[in-house]
Every structure is written in structure tokens, then in C-alpha cells.
Design a protein around this nucleic acid. Structure first.
Lengths: 190, 190, 190, 190
DNA sequence: CATTAACCGAGACGGTACGTCTCGTCTTAAA
DNA sequence: TTTAAGACGAGACGTACCGTCTCGGTTAATG
């Protein structure tokens, strides 16, 4: 007996989808800085209040849109050895770099708005970290990482380089970069 | 020959100082997101146009204020060995972390505004990188770094961790963190 | 015949009463300008659609509420002479001036909305005029009014002063005012 | 000496005129109910803030526009006798009835907004009353009005009929109506 | 007694206008 | 020519109501 539906008109899934799709379109076409709630509403054919009823800001909408897009749980490679796992993880991560404008815009918003920053950390950054941590934890168990090394710092190194290049945009984020980063980490953990 | 003064009223150095001081005060008290040109002008007792005559945006003013503050050329430690130099560099760098709100705000602006991003890279980020590169170059000459390692990647690692922690604010940026980061880098370059 | 009831659930008289009562309460407590359909619905514990099913606007509800309140047919005094009838009529009319906020609000709505204006004229204003006209018609028959005088203009004078004071609120609408207005009219009709 | 100008950019008379002209155009073309601040701003080629800087609401703008239009002091006819003065006053007043939509809209706003109502009374209604009062005062001096009659009540009668017909719109406001109203008043004051 | 049609509450929807905020520019008189 | 002052055009913000719609559930007359 499931019938615990709330009274009243149910939330329109069509409107939700339209809003998220419009948000991604605007982001891709005009960038995060030009994203406006009015614009999303107009493009989605939706009232502005319908956006504000469910999200608190354009950043909140954009975060949902991003999460919705990469909803498929980030696969945690398990190849049996740290080098293989690390290469797989970086390859997978770099492959999603087409979302650079969205990521950069969300980070900018997080820097300006502490409330959004908390949501961004919890729902995005920390979930990504968890994947890498799992890989490293397995490597620790296998004895592939020196026991006096803090895995958290290693995570910071990997994501630090990723985000730094993403934000500063002074060097490529391609497979070659991934290989060299993995190589460096492997040297350090010996 | 005295008269190489330009005609008209000379630029007021007092106004310049007042603007930069007001900018830093506003930043410290209310954060970058709440920084407005009107606010700076009011606090500095200055007309808005006086700001726009010399800077192109509030971010531009904030960048000048930051550079003005840390005007003293960043000292490049030269202790004769990579471990000592690296520790010195990180200690020095971490010591300035009181400017976190300013740095974070400027990075946010750079992410939203490509024009400002260029100025920020040239005048701030790349100058900081140059210091570390000098340290690493000396270490390469001394044979302290494996020749097949790209110093640029090492710089990305150091500044990546720094900025990542600065922006995400999930772990401390203290001396202990500096030691561990230096230790990790030294392990990798063997 | 009994069975001329329509099929389906009959209209809820309780809801009707709750809506009208809520409307009057809101009007008395917060005035016409602050009256909202959402507010009426919430206060009456009723769905908004239940209001729109039976009325076309908040003004329509307010008009019904007013008419419901003063449902008792306005008594037409018949004392046998114009002075007595006129004094009676004015006394009776002024006694209801507690409804000033409602009357003023409905007039405002009528000025802004031609459709409502028609309903307001037919169901309220003209019915009130009819009472006075009956009094004057009897006086004409009795020869108390000069035959070259248009009774309609006299009605305009009486209701004009009433509404003008009601709307502009610059002078009292009390028994004394009624006496003086009646006196003036009696002077004019000689 | 004259030079008491305030510092800063002076208020733009062009903007002021554009706003008032746009307001009158919108009023004439679409009526008071359809008047919006956005509409005025767009039509006047002006920022919305420029309107809100000087007026508190669209009603405030409309009132200024009306006063600006009939700026020429309402002539107080002085023909030497009450009948002539009264006829002249009514003829003059009725001639301006092209402004009916504006007057009706402003009255509606005054009924809904007490703050605006005060401004409307002071700047419009009471100024109009003053004209009629002057005429009546002269007639009192000349002994044309029974000394036991309150001139204020006579003013209420005249403006009451005027506004009642303006608002209810059930009978014409033409010269014939003016003659009959004047005749009625003259009968009453004997 | 089951069906069925109109009603009921709740509340989300698309939409309009509001009044505020900040931006970057423009226009003065004074220095 | 620069300065302080401050009005200006532009445009996004978040809010308040509007009138409509869509649910599950209720209430009688009808079949």
C-alpha cells in the first residue's frame, strides 16, 4: 500500500526536465556568467516562480543540471593494482572535461556564495574525492603506498592539479597530462 | 628643466591610496561578493568616476590592492638545497594566507571574466610560479630532480594543492601541511 | 416537484459561508487593497478553485459579501411627507456607514474594471437609487417638488454628497450632516 | 547671489518631460488600469530607477502628469453675480472632462492607497474646492446666499454631483447638466 | 448498491508587474 | 584636467498575486 501521495497537484516532471535542459543549453551557448534565471525560465517555457520554488539560485539549478547529467555513478575502476586504477580514474575523469564551462562557473559561484559552496562540496567535490579515496585505500591494503603517507594529501595533489589546470587554463588537461600526473604520484608513494 | 608636468590638475595620490585602502577594508569586513564600486567610492570619499578613470572594474581595483599590499618582491630563498628552499618557499607562501578572502574573490572574478583572468594570470599567478620555477631550476642543475621530470608539473602540484585547499577550504593550510607537501614532492623527485 | 436537483455533489453551503465570512474579516482587518484571493482561501480553509468556480474575481466575492450582509431589503420609509421621508432615508443610509472600507474598495474596483463596474451599478448603486426615487416620486405626486425639477438630479445630489464624503473623507457623515443635506434639498425643491 | 546649485549632475529635465509625456500617452491609449511603470520607462526611453528616484509609484507619476497638464491656474471667474460665476465655473470645469480616464484612475488609486490619497487631496481635490469656495465667499458678501447655509456643504453638492457622475457614468456631464446643477444650487441658496 | 458526475482541499503551474540593486556612463561646478 | 557628487539608461534580481490546472477524495442522485 503505497498511496502516500501528498495532496495537490504533483510537481511537473516535464517542467523540471525543461528547466535543467534549458540551463545546460544556456551554459553551453553563452557561458555561466551570462546565465540568468529569466533566461532559463523563458527558454524552458516556465514561470520564474517555478524555478524559485525548487531552487534557491541559478547556481543551485546549474549544480542540479550538472549532477543530473553525470548521474551515472562514477565508476570506480578496480584493476587490481594502483598504476592501472590510477590511470583508469584519470582517463575517466579527463574524459568529462567538456563540462569545463559548467565546472568553472559552479566553482566561481561557490567562491562567492558560502551557502552554495556547502552544497557544491557535499554533492559534487566530496563525492568525487570518495572515488579516488577508495582506489587509494585498496592500494594501502595491498602495500602499494608507503604507510606514512596521508591518502588525503594524495587526493589533494590529484584534484589540486586537475582543478588548477581547469581554472587557470595555462596547460592542457589531456591524456598525456594524465599519464604524467599518475607517474608522478606513483613515484611519490613508493 | 622643471616643467615636464602635464597640464591640468595632477592625479591625486591621496585618492589612489584612499581607494585601495577602502577596497581592502571592504574586502576584510564584508567579503568579495559584497564588494561594490559604489561602496568603495563612498568609503574612500571619492567619486565613482575617479575609480573608473583608472581601473576598469572592481576586480581590477582589488587586484591592484592585493599587489600593492604584497609589493615587496617575493623573496626567492636560496639555501643551497631543494629541501631547504622548498620548505622556505612554502612557509613564506603560507604565511600570507590571511589574504584568503581577497585571493578567493579575485579567482572567482577571473573565472567569470576572461579579460580580468588574463590580467590576474600575468600579474599574479605567473609571477608566483616564476619564484618556484627558479627554485626548481636550481635543483635541476644540482641534480636533485630526476631529469625526466617536468618542472612545470611540479609547480602545478604545489600550487594546485595550495589553491585547491584555499578554494575548497576542507583542510588546513598551516605549517604542518607545508611540511607534508614538501615531503611528498621530495619523495617524487628522487 | 422535488427532484430538480442536479447530479453530482451539491454545492457546499458551508464553503460559501466560510468564503464570505473570511472576506469580510480580511476587509475589516486589513482593508480592501490588501485583500487577496489566496488570503480569502487560506482563511476560509478552502481551495482557490472553489472561489473561482463561483465568483470571477475578489471584487465579485466582496460584492456578494456586502449584499449578503445588507440583505434585508432597504426599507423605504413612507411617512406621508417629503421632509420626514428624506430624514428617515438619510438616517437609515448613514447608519450603515460602518461598511465604509468595503464600499470604498468596491468603488475602486469598479473604477478599474468595467465588467465589475456593471455588476456594481446594477446590483448595488441602482438599487439604492431606486429607494430614493420612490420617495421623490411620491413627493412629486403630492406636489411637494416643483414640477420643472428633474428627480434624477436630486438623486445625484444626495448620493453625490454621500459618496463624495465617503471617498474623499474630508468631512463627517453623521446625523448632523444628514439633517443639513436634507434641509438643503428641501430648500431647492420649493 | 544665485550660485546655490547643488553638486553633481543636475536632474534631467528631458527625462522628466519624457516620463510625464509617456505617462499621459499610455493613459490615453490604454487606460489607467493598464498603466505600468515598466511601460512608462520603456516608452520614455528611461531606466525604471529614474522613475522611482523621483516618484514613489505610478499613481504619483500620474498625479504629477495631470497637475503638469492643467498647470495654468484654474481661472476664478468673477462676473459680479453668483449665477454668472457659477455657470462660468461649471462650464470651465466640464470642459476639462476629457481627462475622465485619468481622474477616475487617480481616484481609484487614492481609494486603495492612503498615502497617495493624502497627496491627491492636497494637490488636486482641495485646490479645486478653493476655487469654488472663493466664488461662494464673494456671493455671501453680496448677500446672495442665505447666511445660515454652510458654503462647505454647497461645495460638496457641486463636486459631489460632478464626481458621482464621473465615477458612476450613468448620466452625461455636459453643458445642459451644468445649467441644471447651477439652477438647483441657486434655488437652494435663496 | 454500484455508478457517476459535480463538488471539495490542496497546491503546482505559466505569467505579469512590482520595487530594488548594481553596473558603467554622463554631466555639472569647483579645485 | 581631475575631482566629488550624483543622476542617468540598462537590465537581472527575487517577491507577490493572478487565474488555471491537476491531483485524490467526498457526496448525493441515478440506474
Amino acid at each position: 500500500m503505497t498511496g502516500d501521495r501528498r495532496p495537490g497537484r504533483p510537481r511537473s516532471e516535464a517542467a523540471r526536465q525543461a528547466i535543467l535542459a534549458a540551463t545546460m543549453s544556456e551554459l553551453r551557448e553563452r557561458g555561466y556568467a551570462a546565465l540568468t534565471v529569466d533566461g532559463i525560465a523563458a527558454r524552458a517555457g516556465v514561470g520564474k516562480q517555478t524555478i524559485y520554488r525548487w531552487w534557491s539560485s541559478k547556481a543551485d539549478v546549474a549544480l542540479t543540471a550538472l549532477l543530473d547529467l553525470s548521474e551515472t555513478t562514477i565508476a570506480v575502476p578496480d584493476e587490481g593494482s594502483l598504476p592501472a586504477d590510477l590511470m583508469g580514474f584519470l582517463a575517466e575523469t579527463f574524459r568529462q572535461r567538456g563540462q569545463r564551462p559548467v565546472l568553472v562557473g559552479l566553482m566561481a559561484q561557490a567562491l562567492l556564495d558560502p551557502v552554495f559552496a556547502a552544497a557544491f562540496r557535499e554533492n559534487f567535490l566530496f563525492r568525487r574525492r570518495a572515488v579516488l579515496r577508495e582506489i587509494l585505500d585498496r592500494a594501502v591494503v595491498r602495500g602499494e603506498i608507503a604507510p606514512d603517507l596521508d591518502p588525503e594529501l594524495l587526493i589533494d595533489v590529484v584534484y589540486g592539479v586537475l582543478w588548477y589546470r581547469l581554472l587557470v587554463d595555462h596547460a592542457p588537461l589531456d591524456d598525456e597530462a594524465g599519464r604524467r600526473l599518475a607517474d608522478l604520484v606513483l613515484r611519490a608513494v613508493r
